[in-house]
Design a binder for these strands. Structure first.
Lengths: 122, 122
DNA sequence: ATAACATATGTACACTTGTTCATATGTACA
DNA sequence: TGTACATATGAACAAGTGTACATATGTTAT
């Protein structure tokens, strides 16, 4: 006869608040949503990308502008813009040789502001 | 006589929207804030930590509960809780042998919700 | 067509990170 | 004091990541 404890294999502890675990298990977002959420925050979790996004919140800019602003290689900025593009956080438009990037999501600023509020409250 | 272009050394492009760059430079948050913000999102940028936080939003839980819920090692959960603790995202209280963790910041849920909204809008 | 220039991309490398295993710490109870 | 148990931590390793260099692509103008 199998008990609940038998089924939960990877916890080597004996004390489990079974009801709490089951309650929370029922409340959790889907595995896919949790994965996607982590992927999104992973994109935010780099200083260069944060800077790029903060800059684009203020103005539309070309790759060269951003590289100059952040004092970084055109190549690295371009690589990071690719990641931001894939995450649908920025969009671009081409004007001759120049490619202009801008923010593609109004929530970016709100998410950043919430993050800054957390930091300010120590 | 030095020009603006001379001072910006790491951009090998010739076209720079000087005014835009200077305007945005004046609007950017401090280097420290940007760094801290990236560090915060780096903490969110892992599936295990996201899951732990989502779980703790629902209920206070002990390490063992979380390990059972996520079907993971007690050790790895403990390591991740340490990171969350350092980021002031969770707090803990000891009751005998058991250590109970809970959310230490009301903004966590709001930040997650904003993230999920971004994902839902494709 | 060719040169000049803005941007994109492939590759390589140093560095970071999450997990596991082994073990230490801390608490309760006999 | 000794045992059992919940949690914390150190070390090691595989896997992932950001940057720079070299080069390709795409656009304009001569």
């Amino acid at each position: 006869m199998k008990t609940e404890k038998d089924r939960i294999t990877s916890c080597d502890c004996n004390l489990i608040h079974k009801e709490t675990v089951e309650y929370v298990a029922g409340k959790m977002p889907s595995e896919e949503d949790l994965y996607d959420l982590a992927e999104l925050f992973k994109v935010f979790g780099d200083t260069t990308r944060i800077k790029i996004l903060c800059a684009l919140v203020e103005a539309e800019m070309c790759v060269c502008d951003i590289a100059a602003l952040l004092n970084m290689t055109q190549s690295s900025i371009s690589h990071q813009l690719r990641i931001l593009k894939q995450a649908r956080l920025v969009r671009y438009r081409r004007d001759g040789k120049v490619v202009y990037y801008s923010i593609d999501d109004e929530h970016v600023k709100q998410i950043f502001d919430q993050g800054l509020i957390h930091l300010k409250e120590r």
